[in-house]
């Protein structure tokens, strides 16, 4: 490493670069040992199955970058799916207006979170813990828990299988979303302030940023994206029910954090998040195809375990390097807090 220039060294050792390496190794391993992993059909499965979680993770990234969190996205997906079902079935709306209303409702629900967090200055973890229960609860109350909506427009349902130029629709949507969020977070002045706010809200305020209004936007966007994910999910599963998106909030947060965004805010990149999403999606799809794994019937469990382990290693790695390099330092710093 001595021959590398400092800036190059810094970039090679960046979290995102290391993660990309891990992703490549993962890929190579699965191509060699997992049965039929690298086929185009299977790779499009990888994208289709991770589209909703991927979208949520992309939207979650700016939220976490500002030092916040949104636990309600999975529940909001359930509520939006149910709402879309109600609009098309009980109110006989056509697909497009129903989808528009659903997206608006997602935006509104995101706005509700944003209002509580920014106007009332309540902690995001707790606000969205409350709306996590509330949104799922409303979805269950509307459907009385049991109702499933199934009679959707065939054209809408075919979206779950549509391919453009051989690539599933979900991949195009993910790409568009990733590009938009990239532009927002890394290329707009508004979005660049997210990092400043996450790094130090007080500092950002003194620097003249309107912290509250800028913090509101990421929550609005998670609401909108959750509604979009709900629509995609409904098309893919060919049904809308209150349990859509169960547990997706944790998957999305895992992808963001694995992608190198600090859970305390202030640090992180969108390409990193993309790599985090890909690493988890590839692992989830591929590990169950390794013959030794599927013979033992432990694919699902192993995928979760490895994701957890990857997350810890990804976080601990840089910290270990720092500890080793500053071993002689006398003062041990305080643990990080929420």
């Amino acid at each position: 490493m001595a021959s590398l220039s400092p800036s190059l060294k810094k970039n090679v050792l960046r979290h995102e670069s290391l993660l990309l390496l891990v992703l490549l190794l993962e890929f190579a391993f699965l191509c060699l040992y997992a049965r039929n992993f690298g086929t185009p059909d299977n790779l499009s499965n990888v994208v289709r199955h991770s589209a909703e979680i991927g979208l949520l993770a992309l939207a979650m990234m700016p939220v976490i970058l500002t030092g916040g969190i949104d636990l309600s996205v999975g529940s909001l997906m359930g509520l939006c799916a149910v709402l879309f079902g109600v609009l098309t079935h009980d109110y006989h709306l056509a697909t497009l207006p129903a989808a528009a209303v659903t997206l608006a409702a997602g935006l509104f629900a995101g706005g509700f979170n944003a209002f509580l967090i920014t106007a009332l200055r309540l902690p995001p973890l707790i606000v969205t813990l409350g709306t996590y229960s509330l949104f799922r609860g409303l979805a269950e109350a509307i459907t009385q828990g049991t109702k499933t909506y199934r009679a959707f427009d065939p054209a809408f349902l075919s979206l779950g299988e549509t391919r453009w130029f051989g690539v599933p629709l979900q991949a195009w949507i993910l790409t568009a979303a990733a590009a938009s969020f990239y532009l927002l977070v890394h290329r707009s002045t508004f979005g660049r302030s997210f990092r400043a706010i996450g790094f130090s809200p007080e500092g950002a305020r003194y620097a003249g940023l309107s912290v509250q209004s800028r913090t509101a936007l990421p929550y609005l966007l998670t609401g909108l994206v959750a509604a979009l994910a709900a629509l995609l999910f409904t098309a893919r599963l060919r049904q809308a029910r209150a349990d859509a998106g169960t547990g997706y909030e944790l998957c999305a947060i895992t992808a963001v954090v694995l992608g190198g965004t600090s859970i305390f805010g202030g640090v992180g990149t969108l390409p990193g998040t993309l790599a985090g999403i890909a690493a988890i999606a590839v692992l989830t799809n591929g590990i169950g195809r390794v013959p030794a794994v599927f013979k033992a019937g432990i694919g699902g469990e192993l995928a979760s375990l490895l994701t957890g382990a990857l997350l810890l290693v990804a976080l601990a790695g840089p910290e270990l390097a720092r500890v080793l390099s500053t071993r002689s330092a006398k003062i041990s710093p305080s643990p990080k807090t929420l």
Binding site: I69, L250, I253, T254, V257, S262, I263, F264, G308, A309, L311, L312, L315, A316, E319, L320, V323, P333, P335, K336, T337, L338
Partner: peptide
């Protein structure tokens, strides 16, 4: 405490 990792992520894992 010693590795200074964020508790929410550690305990999620």
């Amino acid at each position: 405490a010693w590795m200074r990792l964020p508790s929410i992520v550690v305990t999620l894992a």
